[in-house]
Design a protein around this nucleic acid. Structure first.
Lengths: 192, 192
DNA sequence: AGAGTAACCAAGCAAGCGCTAGTGTAAATG
DNA sequence: CATTTACACTAGCGCTTGCTTGGTTACTCT
């Protein structure tokens, strides 16, 4: 296996793996399929990754890191008002969801296949991301912008956003930003 | 395979299969694991089901039929006001989601493993269920109870509800009905 | 009693699985 | 020039997979 864990080759392989995992599911994707897609033989795969599990972990980590980076950037750039921050988070979420779609679909629907060690590490990353959300939701609640239980609201909102990967068509008339704004409007009484 | 497709034995086997599919995922659940859980040998399994795919289809069909039945009953029994109908649908959704949890988790997260034929059949069932939702959402929109795009609102709401299987703890302080009411309140400006 | 049938079992096949061992080679490094 | 490193290859081991086959029980219905 490569010593430098973030070699460009490995990144490209991770991207291809994400695509196959989405198409076939992790379990049905064989190392031979992965290798073929990458233009190498199956044995060579294990030079880049310790085992198949590690490929899955790499895919999910990549997606979550991107989500974190995009969300932080969005928060740093937007106006310091609860409504704008809420909107920024929703937009950032959909942005990463559809630019890194493969990685996120894998993260959302295949994380049960992770072994305990990888799962623990990635859970922390995920928690860091959700913490950003809860903070923004808290501000919006305090400002009276939305109402309800902070815990429930964030879960409901994240659920609604994550579920978009199941039905949203990026080639349709609506942009992801559109979608985000509609969701925020839906839960904001004052913006009717 | 059994001629009578709905034999009680088959129903029980389907229930056990759902449980295993949730625990391990469809692909990682072997016919030998299924057979052992059922107290028979792996070969005997194929007396009840044509192949492994058919077991998956049976699990999903069972769940969706239950969802349809419960939703229809809830609508028939509740007052004929948009708000009550909306609440009834949300409650019904969470009710079936957690009483038939295994079947629904499989339906939500493993339907990609269905072959095209089974997938087409079950899609129709699913569409019938979603049609109930869209009708109720339409009424609520017309009554000015909620606002937004009919299509988006139903997708967002269903997403938020379906996502509960990922975090809701039935042994916690909140009841499923509680959850449903909170969600409806979240999207209804007037009930602040 | 005899026929029919649902439910099961033991045994195993052919295919496919993740992964390993050992080797070759071209480029970078001392 | 000698050595290391990165990356790829061939070949295949040991095991598991979904499913089949051929036969056996146990029960019901005439």
């Amino acid at each position: 296996m490569n010593v430098i864990n973030a070699s460009p080759r490995r990144k490209e392989l991770t991207r291809l793996a994400a695509q196959l995992f989405v198409q076939e599911g992790f379990d049905r994707t064989t190392v031979r399929m992965l290798a073929q897609e990458m233009g190498i033989k199956s044995g060579s795969l294990f030079h880049h990754f310790k085992d198949k599990q590690e490929i899955l972990a790499a895919v999910i980590e990549e997606g979550t890191q991107n989500a974190l980076a995009i969300a932080r950037k969005a928060l740093a750039e937007c106006a310091d008002e609860p409504e704008m921050r809420l909107r920024a988070m929703a937009r950032a979420h959909l942005e990463t969801l559809f630019t890194d779609r493969n990685a996120h679909v894998v993260a959302l629907f295949e994380w049960r296949r992770l072994d305990p060690a990888a799962s623990a590490h990635l859970s922390h990353l995920r928690d860091a991301y959700e913490a950003l959300w809860v903070a923004v939701i808290d501000d919006a609640l305090e400002a009276g912008l939305i109402h309800g239980d902070r815990f429930l609201v964030s879960r409901f909102v994240l659920g609604a956003l994550n579920w978009t990967v199941r039905w949203y068509d990026p080639n349709g008339p609506r942009s992801p930003d559109d979608l985000a704004d509609e969701l925020v409007a839906m839960i904001m009484p004052t913006s009717a």
